[in-house]
């Protein structure tokens, strides 16, 4: 019985680690990342673009 438990535990742990890796990509926070990018772009191209980040912050 003990070897079976060990195998089940090892396989389960491997699956969880794998799922964790996939989840971090799957659950990448797209909106906050876009907001961060817009803030950076507002700072780098101040005379070129309408500041999106500031406008959205005002709205919310």
């Amino acid at each position: 019985m003990k070897p079976v438990k060990t195998v089940v535990a090892s396989v389960s742990l491997a699956c969880i680690v794998l799922m964790g890796g996939c989840a971090s990509t799957l659950f990448f926070p797209v909106k906050p990342a876009e907001k961060a990018a817009d803030k950076v772009i507002d700072d780098v191209w101040p005379d070129l673009v309408k500041p999106v980040a500031a406008a959205e912050a005002k709205k919310s």
């Binding site: 969880i16 680690v17 799922m19 964790g20 989840a23 971090s24 799957l26 659950f27 926070p29």
Partner: peptide, 8 residues
């Protein structure tokens, strides 16, 4: 190793 995904 695992936690609450940000989407949740």
């Amino acid at each position: 190793l695992i936690g609450m995904p940000p989407a949740f």
